[in-house]
Amino acid sequence: MNDLPDRFPRGWFVLGHQRDFPVGETKTIFGFNNKILISRIEDGSVAVDVGGDTSWPVLEINQMVMVWHDVEKQDPDFTPDKIEECYSDDWSDYGMASFIVKNNCRELIDNMADKGHFGPVHQAPFEGFWNEAKDHTYTQEMTADSPILGRDLFSQARYEGPAYMTTYMSAVHDGAKVESRLLVSHIPLTLTSFVINFGVMVKKVPGMSAEDEAAFIQGYVDANNFAFGQDVAIWENKIYIPDPVVCDGDGPLHKLRKWYGQFLVNRADIPSGLDLEKREF
């Protein structure tokens, strides 16, 4: 039988981009087995109603509206770091896209330690691959060469909690260096489905017209959509192996899953020793 978690993880979850919640409007989305109403009231603040419960903490940071989920109903014990690029005129805003995945949201997390899937699934064999876990953060650094996401690729991806990942990426396209920032967030709909909301912003190229810039961002959104499609084809046709046999070339998958497990238990039950010093795998 499928051994599903008994709850949704504790942490900050992105509800959407700030621009999607204008003053005076109420939007409805689904998440956490509930209908969620999101309203921006006249004073500019956002009120969230999750199935009639209005006590969920709300945060606006890095262009996103986020909500804190915690079955124990305690105050947040961290907030995501501010990303300067989200507030800089030198960078575009996030272009956003979303799609549903029919599996438990933990499937997404395995990717952080899963260096072995980049070649077969994304045709992008890694060159260097590093992982680090510290408190509520988990960081992956990677160098690779990808026909889809760019040549001479460097990326640093960091989870802050179980559902908010941001990436700094640089790659060479047509001989020019492109710097980008990725957002990969998700909201669980049920224990066997979730919605990925992802965003892409790029460093503006001097002299580029607004039109070309929009097309360029859309190209990056499309490329990432394509890469996610490759993952989804796997995610929707697999079982969960709780204790996989790993080989010497695999990343620290067991370590990563233990780190993620801290968000699936009460705070008093979080084990110690979840940190992982940065090292290459």
Partner: peptide
């Protein structure tokens, strides 16, 4: 943004 229903598929 999404306005999807709460689907709870059975997993393989």
């Amino acid at each position: 943004m999404t306005d999807q229903e709460l689907i709870a598929p059975e997993l393989p």
